[in-house]
Design a protein around this nucleic acid. Sequence first.
DNA 1: ATCAATCATGATAATAATTATCATTATCAT
DNA 2: ATGATAATGATAATTATTATCATGATTGAT
Lengths: 147, 147
Amino acid sequence: MNKDEFTRATDILNDYIQSRPLKYSEKRLVILRALLDSNRHLTAEELHSIVKDKDASIGIATIYRTLRLFTECGISGELTLDGSTTRYYPALGKAHHDHLICIKCGKVVNIVSPGIEKTQEKLARENGFTLESHRLDLFGICSDCQK
Amino acid sequence: MNKDEFTRATDILNDYIQSRPLKYSEKRLVILRALLDSNRHLTAEELHSIVKDKDASIGIATIYRTLRLFTECGISGELTLDGSTTRYYPALGKAHHDHLICIKCGKVVNIVSPGIEKTQEKLARENGFTLESHRLDLFGICSDCQK
DNA sequence: ATCAATCATGATAATAATTATCATTATCAT
DNA sequence: ATGATAATGATAATTATTATCATGATTGAT
């Protein structure tokens, strides 16, 4: 859908691949395009079923392997809600974001709050921690589901 | 360890049991005491191995069933980090709290920040959501592990 | 105290998501 | 082209958790 985004993602991916003992693969590009096009938070299974329309030979194991690779090099992110299935989403070039999740329909909205981030730093410092990352998920009911 | 806490917990539990078709069980009290005494974030397996010293007949299924019951009636809480094992902790009478987690040693510190809660409410409202709950986990390195 | 109804439990089978294994195929530097 | 090694598909293995089911415990009515 967004050509620039795909190009930027492949650039990052290629750099990552060339900086370590990895090799090119066409299938990774098919998976990448599907992930970027959907622009949703997908499970590995969902992505697999989308991708199979383009290349029926791609197996579920490759989906998992590839998503891990994408997450390692920063072009996708992972979201796990309460010990259940992990969902993957394009994270390229986006600032770190948190999630607002509708507990009725499952919709996920990305949110950003620099204010919260600062408070988090302070809390960590007060407890002697060096902060590495965080996860903030807000659960509620979206406007559609309130009707 | 803390007798008042145990008494308060059993009161809540008894009320809960009597308010629906449930029956008394001694084993639940053994599990409750172990959970309160440890005062840590335990996996079901960890709690099971602690509890077996008191009553070797308690099986892992009962641990899971009982922890779910405790969480339902508010005397324990659940914490799941990134799709892995769920940990359970005493939540009785504690205000809602977030977690500060050491990524080296696994230590979990409870934190409270009214400021963050308010910002969350605002973010939810801005996106048309009614907020129900949230989960905030900060990942970092604790003072011990920085040495 | 007895009894019947039904909840609680232990052992274990089942499930679901993810990862590991391994034989085969593709890539890449020479 | 070739040899080394990464990528892949199919599937076995793993892990945490839940469901099943036969048995034992609790409760309320008699």
